[in-house]
Design a protein around this nucleic acid. Structure first.
Lengths: 252, 252
DNA sequence: CGTCTAGTTGAGTAACATCAACGTGGGTGG
DNA sequence: CCACCCACGTTGATGTTACTCAACTAGACG
């Protein structure tokens, strides 16, 4: 009896008990309505690094909220190489861009051991018929994505290698901070290769910039472990701003 | 009496009489519901080239459908230069990316004499409460935008100058085609400068690529007048495909 | 213990930016 | 109506950034 309860708690953390609920979809709902959302969510086994959540071209049926770990989405270029289109950390929603099509326009793959909440879209859509706030939250998520992509396009068309990496690090830092983690030091879940791919840089360039940043006292990098030692200057490079001492803001 | 009617027709083309209705928001509505949408739409005087529809930071209140002419949206980089984020042709919706914020995240400016339909967002939102199909259409427009941005990011991070220009031309061609115009020959509404800015290239590079394309028989360019003389090869360069003879498809 | 992948570093190179000069056409003011 | 001006576009010469190729190291994993 007790053991069964425990198992259920471990494998099925309800939205109302989830530490991410105020960063994720449930934030749009009143406490008594959260269970409604909860009922349609499916929680599966963890994905191991390298496993796919869905493949480009798979029939679209669900969006997913990352619970732990990290995902990347990517699409194939004409030459068959992969182009990474985004990284997704806990509380973030992945799969929305396929929403108006029959198929996912990108593949989603775990870049470390990852747990997700699956939200079948037809049921989410029905639910959102009754909850205007949920609807608006979905809109907000998509609008934010559009604005992020805008920033990304600016990065790709105007920024040099240093600025790209600085922007990327500051952006990650702010996403960690949002979830209550340190924005000073954190662990990169992606490889240098994936970072370069995403930022439109060769691996070697990424490596060189990291080395140079370290030499100049901006960061301390030990493999995937990153410590930001001069947030001020890193932000300046990224083109963002520091609101308070050591308090990194997302580059909108 | 008659003259008054005429004036009204000229300045106030109703959605139901608009040739763009099946390419624009009304396509989500039944014929009898279109008038409902029509009632909330405001149609103002034409914007002259260079006039702004809204400025970055202006309070968000409306989305706009382009009726004739063309707009660009742009944002300021940290160094104060402009970064063009999109071009908008007739039937296309501009202003949606500010939807979840208090302010427009970009400026919108006419690049030639332009007419727009203004759709106050609070009223559109109310209307969409009653018309699920309208709601879904809005979602679709945003999803498409996200996917277009994805393609744009790929262009900016992986394609060389030739491929960028080819992609741009093919994309424009397909948008003209969608509206029933020739995809073979058309007039660019933007300057070489704006094109380069948008594509992440220097003006000189754009100019050189145009010259080279012409030399190689891919296009015939006379100032802003463009004729595509080898659609096949241009598509190949862009990484798209030709469905039928001379039948250009959008690069998804 | 060998193999494989990820990461780093160096040398040479290609692609595009930058700088400069010049032509052209459309708009404006005299 | 003409002359001038200015923005736009083109072309050439040069410079710079980041890519490519290659070699090497270190850690992961069977």
């Amino acid at each position: 009896m007790v053991s069964k309860l425990n198992v259920r708690q471990v494998t099925h953390v309800a939205c109302r008990d989830c530490s991410l609920s105020q960063l994720c979809l449930p934030l749009a709902l009143k406490i008594e309505d959260i269970d409604e959302l909860d009922r349609i969510i499916k929680r599966g086994r963890p994905l191991k690094k390298g496993e796919h959540l869905f493949l480009e071209g798979d029939p679209f049926h669900s969006v997913y909220a990352v619970r732990s770990g990290a995902l990347k989405t990517y699409t194939a270029t004409n030459e068959g190489e992969e182009q990474i289109t985004g990284f997704y950390l806990p509380s973030e929603l992945v799969g929305l861009s396929g929403l108006d099509t029959e198929a996912y326009p990108v593949s989603a793959q775990a870049i470390e051991t990852t747990m997700v909440c699956e939200i079948p879209f037809d049921r989410l859509e029905k639910l959102s018929d009754d909850y205007p706030e949920l609807r608006r939250q979905l809109m907000r998520v998509m609008c934010r994505k559009i604005r992020e992509d805008q920033q990304m396009k600016l990065l790709l068309s105007k920024k040099n290698a240093d600025e790209r990496i600085a922007t990327f690090l500051i952006n990650l830092a702010s996403r960690f901070r949002r979830r209550g983690f340190s924005s000073q030091s954190f662990r990169l879940s992606m490889s240098r290769n994936e970072m370069g791919n995403y930022l439109g840089l060769a691996v070697e360039t990424v490596s060189r910039v990291f080395t140079r940043f370290q030499k100049n006292g901006l960061i301390n990098a030990n493999g995937k472990e990153i410590e930001i030692t001069n947030a001020m200057e890193l932000c300046a490079l990224a083109g963002g701003k520091l609101v308070e001492h050591q308090d990194i803001v997302n580059i909108q």
